[in-house]
Simulated scan of single mutants.
Amino acid sequence: MPIYNKINAGFALGTAEPVTSGIEDVIYIFNEDEIALTYDALNSLIVSGLTAVGSAKVYKFTGTNNSFNSTSKLTKTQVGPRYTEEIDFNIAGLSTSVKAQLMAMGYGRVRAITINNYKAGDSAIELFGAVNGLILTDAERNAADEGVEGGYKLKLTNPDKLKEPYPPRAVSIAPDSGSATYASTLAALEALVD
């Protein structure tokens, strides 16, 4: 019986472009059912298109001083590998509109796009929650926390028992003519931002 998947390449770390940890202080979040995903025909790990359903928007959250983080953890299950995806970020604000957004992320499912500090690979921009979406599992506010000035510390992760079947997908969107680049992908994301 053949193995379901087989490795097909090796890799080496380059000295010209050393690996850089962390993600930029920006996260793009959208409701799971409001932006349709198109996958690359040759590589299902690449999202090659994002299309708004109706007048849907992508919402941009910005932070400072490396206050955002993303994590992907492999878990072996009886049916194969699954990935737990998490994004931690902070919100400085206490308005009722902020609280309404927190409630929406807690009950509905969202997807999130992050930008890695390491730009040399083809996964500089990644999508989390591609298959099962993400929900807000932690929203902690300590009014005396000087680190976030009394704001919220948030965690988006997969719903219970719904881990992702793939690691975070690369997002690589080509312009109307030409090949996909980092700049063309960012431009496509920004075009969908509210």
Rank of each mutant, 00 (worst) to 15 (best):
L74C: 08
G80Q: 03
F61M: 11
T77G: 02
I35D: 07
L50Q: 08
A36G: 05
L42A: 15
S55I: 00
I46N: 11
I35Q: 10
G49I: 02
N43P: 11
Y59D: 12
A36F: 03
S72I: 03
T77R: 03
A52P: 10
I35S: 07
I35H: 06
I46E: 09
S48G: 05
A41N: 09
T64P: 00
T75H: 01
T75C: 00
T64I: 01
K76L: 09
Y83G: 05
E85T: 01
G49T: 09
K57S: 14
N66Y: 06
S48V: 03
L42H: 12
N66H: 13
K73E: 11
Y39M: 08
V58C: 05
K76W: 02
F68S: 13
N65Q: 09
Q78C: 01
N66G: 15
L74H: 12
T51H: 09
A52K: 10
L37P: 07
L37E: 10
N66S: 15
Y39T: 12
L50G: 05
S44D: 10
Y83P: 02
L45M: 15
P81I: 04
T62E: 15
A36N: 11
T38C: 04
I46D: 10
A41D: 11
L37V: 08
T77L: 01
Y59Q: 13
T77I: 01
V79C: 01
G63F: 01
S67K: 11
T64R: 14
N65P: 00
I35P: 06
K73D: 05
V79L: 01
T64W: 01
V79G: 06
S67I: 01
A41T: 11
I46P: 07
V53R: 14
K73V: 06
N43M: 10
S70C: 07
P81Y: 08
F68W: 10
V79R: 06
N69R: 14
Y83C: 04
